[in-house]
Amino acid sequence: MILPKKLTTLLATLVVMSVVDMFSCAAETPLSDVIRSAQTKVVKIFGAGGLKQLEAYQTGILISPSGHVLTARSYVLDTDDLAIVLDDGRSFKPEYLGSDPIRELALLKLPIEDESFPHFDLQNQATAQVGDRVLALSNLYGIATGDEPVSVLQGAITAIAPLDARRGAFATVYRDNVYVVDAYANNPGAAGGALVDWQGRLLGLLGKEVKSRVTGTWLNYALPTASFSSSVNELLAGHDTTWEPPSQLPEQSLTTERLGMRLVPDVLPITPPYLDAVRTGSPAEKAGLRADDLIVFVGGRQIASCRALLEELTYHDEREEIEVSLLRDGELVVVTLQAEGEHAEE
């Protein structure tokens, strides 16, 4: 359902007003100004989805004056029609620069070179303690579609603890500490939003919708800025724009069948490349691969989906030895794989 623009503006404004009215801010800058400033640094992202329980929207934050956007890595980004809408309503088609598979983050870039954008400074890191009051900014439920401000929720840090959660049948890869909040911050569309303190400083990035593996309840949490700032800086510094697929493929390419591994059903364009099974006696089993392993790199190249893995294997000769990096129980494991040739046992 698409809400009228005036109604969406009113809803977002009411959320902000309720936060301001409930508390008074002791800082010199009025809380309303702090919120408004933070909202200009948060963007709305629209992309793939639209199926049942697959929302086609999420949130991101500006992290550089030149228009770099940090968000959650998800199926929403897997489309040629990805759009980022700024606070002022302008819409741009971003460039996908890279991702962090452990923290499930993605880095995008606006196609603008002659403008300085308001942004959160990852180098000026703020931290919070249990009991600290916080604000969560995101495009909850896709309410904002144009120049409407993103929604704001107020709450407090209730715990700082390792993330022990699952998404469907799979455990989350990230296992380090997160900020747990008492606001319903991690609803549809919120992933990639900002958690800030009452001075507007970035505390963390709102995560995806997950359930606790201990209690089975939905979690409201954010990844602390300190947990991903180094990774994001590496993405900013190491973006490779020169790589192109080889012009000629080998006569016999590697395949998952030759390696003896079966992927989970590829139901979405960006289905994560988890292993569903490993064949007994296969090269994959001999290398130590197991069911539920998540493949993240092959031959030094990042793998974001089942389709990306299958495509990457076509670039490698069946006799070639390749290095595969995978995530298992939150740890990065590196193995070497080599098929046994065309007469390998099927």
Score class of each variant (00 low, 15 high):
Gly288Glu: 04
Glu323Ile: 01
Thr256Ser: 02
Pro101Tyr: 07
Glu345Gly: 10
Ala126Arg: 15
Lys44Arg: 14
Leu337Glu: 09
Ser91Gly: 01
Arg328Met: 04
Glu251Lys: 12
Ser138Gly: 12
Leu110Gly: 09
Ala159Glu: 08
Asn186Phe: 05
Gly155Ala: 08
Leu327Gln: 05
Val76Gln: 03
Asp293Trp: 02
Gly216Met: 03
Ala126Phe: 13
Thr241Leu: 01
Gly146Val: 14
Gln53Asp: 15
Pro269Lys: 13
Ser247Cys: 03
Asn177Ser: 09
Asn233Glu: 14
Leu62Pro: 05
Thr59Asp: 03
Leu137Gln: 13
Ile102Gly: 04
Leu108Arg: 13
Asp182Gly: 12
Ala106Glu: 10
Asp132Gly: 02
Leu31Glu: 00
Ala38Thr: 02
Met22Cys: 10
Phe23His: 07
Pro245Ala: 06
Ile270Cys: 10
Asp240Leu: 05
Asn177Arg: 05
Tyr75Met: 13
Glu323Gly: 00
Leu235Cys: 12
Ile303Gly: 07
Thr336Cys: 00
Leu3Met: 14
Glu115Val: 09
Ala284Arg: 06
Ile143Val: 14
Ser74Glu: 09
Arg262Tyr: 04
Ala26His: 11
Pro272Thr: 01
Glu320Ala: 15
Glu257Tyr: 05
Ala171Ser: 13
Val69Leu: 07
Ala106Cys: 12
Pro224Glu: 13
Glu331Trp: 03
Val210Tyr: 02
Thr79His: 08
Thr40Val: 03
Thr127Glu: 15
Val19Asn: 08
Lys208Pro: 02
Pro224Ala: 11
Ala165Gln: 03
Lys93Asp: 09
Asp78Gln: 14
Gly49Asn: 11
Val298Thr: 06
Ala161His: 13
Gly204Ser: 14
Lys41Met: 04
Asp88Pro: 01
Ser247Asn: 07
Asn124Gly: 11
Lys52Ser: 14
Ala222Cys: 02
Arg328Leu: 04
Asp21Tyr: 13
Gln154Arg: 12
Ser212Pro: 08
Arg133Cys: 01
Glu244Thr: 09
Ser282Trp: 00
Pro283Cys: 09
Tyr179Gly: 04
Asp121Cys: 00
Lys286Tyr: 08
Tyr315Asn: 11
Glu55Tyr: 09
Thr314Lys: 15
His119Phe: 07
Val210Leu: 07
Leu327Ala: 02
Phe170Gly: 01
Pro273Phe: 00
Leu51Asn: 02
Glu234Ala: 15
